[in-house]
Write a protein that binds this DNA or RNA. Structure first.
Lengths: 142, 142
DNA sequence: TATTAGTCTATTAATTCAATAGACTTTGTA
DNA sequence: TACAAAGTCTATTGAATTAATAGACTAATA
């Protein structure tokens, strides 16, 4: 299961992606519309800003808006930002790799082989799942 | 990431699946060989027994052994037993379903659509990953 | 210059995960 | 038949992570 943080982040991003380009949206508006505790959301949006996905404007008339194109923001990146690795085992992650204590030879580990396959498929699907794709699916499916 | 409990369970199961049929193996032997805290392992094996995957024999000469065929024990079942749902969102699980508060229509939710796809692919792969398959992969890959 | 709105740091509450302790029951065998 | 081996069961504890909150600070606009 993804954390609430990630879930909130995705909801907020989709919400922003549906708004006109560069138009600052109040944190409070997002929080209310998406049922997210405002203070919690503030931290999330700040993370997304640090990562270059969002930008913000301070003061009156300020708020957050999408900096990257909806085509360039995918679920794999968002999940990694908040929850860390997508892989189910430490020995099949790229950035957070950790060897199994009891493992003598990874290349001949059947368990690793299975979970590597799962990871690769999952990452592939999540990379394709951009904000643009999510919005498109929401419109087309009925 | 799967929990250590699940990881330990898988390691123990693979270990047992490599042993002769019906031969009771000591908890202590598994614990030592797989680097698992013995008391922790006891609880895990008990769960696997309650679920009908393992059987045990008490007293001297006792221990645990595989009850189901290695072909009938898959990673999806084991993961669900210890970690719960495989899905990444509560609204795409079968047994642990929970509606999203802010969601008005699931069928038109692009987010749900993406994560449903991920879940289905993952479950499919994990169902194919039986103990027999894992052992086979461990032998063939070099 | 007052008000609005994002920024930052710290703290707390709640939950889950991992591990441990110890008493109890069953069973084989000397 | 008594002892020792080995699994069973319940409870508890400690650690880590997740979720949420509080409040002071900074920047920008009218």
């Amino acid at each position: 299961m993804i954390s609430k943080k990630t879930k909130y982040a995705i909801n907020a991003l989709v919400y922003l992606a549906k708004k006109p380009l560069q138009q600052p949206i109040l944190i409070s508006e997002i929080a209310e519309h998406e049922h997210i505790p405002q203070k919690f959301l503030e931290a999330i949006l700040l993370n997304l800003k640090k990562d270059g996905i969002l930008a913000s404007k301070k003061g009156k008339g300020g708020g957050y808006f999408l900096l990257k194109s909806p085509n360039d923001v995918n679920m794999a990146d968002v999940m990694r930002l908040f929850d860390g690795p997508i892989a189910l085992l430490p020995c099949v992650t790229y950035k957070y790799y950790q060897k199994c204590e009891e493992c003598t030879d990874e290349d001949s580990c059947g368990i690793r082989s299975v979970f590597l396959e799962v990871r690769n498929h999952t990452v592939e699907l999540l990379k394709k799942a951009t904000l643009a794709e999510i919005i498109k699916r929401g419109e087309s499916v009925h």
